[in-house]
Amino acid sequence: ESETFDVELTKNVQGLGITIAGYIGDKKLEPSGIFVKSITKSSAVEHDGRIQIGDQIIAVDGTNLQGFTNQQAVEVLRHTGQTVLLTLMRRG
Rank of each mutant, 00 (worst) to 15 (best):
E1P: 06
S2I: 15
T4Y: 09
F5N: 03
F5T: 00
F5H: 01
F5Q: 01
D6R: 11
V7D: 00
E8H: 14
E8N: 09
L9C: 07
T10P: 05
T10V: 10
T10L: 05
K11D: 06
K11G: 10
N12R: 08
N12A: 09
N12H: 10
V13E: 15
Q14G: 13
Q14F: 12
Q14W: 09
G15C: 05
I18Q: 04
I18N: 00
I18L: 11
I18K: 02
T19G: 11
T19P: 04
I20A: 06
I20T: 12
A21K: 11
A21F: 06
A21P: 03
G22K: 10
Y23K: 15
I24W: 12
D26Q: 13
D26A: 11
K27N: 12
K27A: 11
K28A: 11
K28N: 13
K28R: 10
L29K: 14
E30L: 05
E30R: 06
I34L: 12
I34T: 05
F35N: 02
F35R: 09
V36E: 09
V36H: 04
V36K: 00
K37S: 09
S38E: 13
S38A: 14
S38M: 05
I39D: 00
I39S: 02
T40V: 11
T40N: 12
T40K: 15
K41G: 07
S42K: 14
S42I: 04
S42H: 15
S42T: 09
S43V: 11
V45P: 06
V45C: 14
E46W: 11
E46N: 08
H47Y: 13
H47D: 15
H47P: 07
H47R: 15
H47W: 07
D48H: 07
D48R: 07
G49A: 06
G49W: 00
G49K: 06
R50S: 07
R50F: 03
R50M: 05
I51K: 01
I51M: 03
Q52I: 06
Q52P: 01
I53R: 07
G54V: 00
Q56M: 04
I58V: 13
I58M: 10
I58Y: 02
I58K: 06
I58D: 04
A59N: 04
V60C: 08
D61M: 00
D61K: 00
G62M: 00
G62L: 03
G62A: 03
T63Y: 09
T63Q: 14
T63M: 11
N64G: 08
L65N: 00
L65G: 00
L65T: 06
L65V: 13
Q66E: 14
Q66M: 11
Q66D: 13
Q66Y: 08
G67I: 02
G67V: 04
G67R: 07
F68I: 09
F68G: 05
F68K: 10
T69E: 05
T69S: 12
N70Q: 15
N70T: 15
Q72C: 07
Q72Y: 05
A73S: 07
A73W: 03
V74M: 12
V74I: 14
E75C: 06
E75L: 02
V76K: 10
V76N: 04
L77M: 10
L77C: 01
L77F: 08
R78E: 11
R78M: 12
R78D: 09
H79A: 15
H79G: 15
T80Q: 02
T80K: 04
T80D: 02
Q82W: 02
Q82F: 03
T83S: 11
T83M: 05
T83K: 15
L85D: 04
L86A: 00
L86T: 03
T87F: 00
T87G: 04
M89I: 11
R90W: 01
R90L: 00
R91L: 07
R91H: 13
R91Y: 09
G92W: 10
G92A: 14
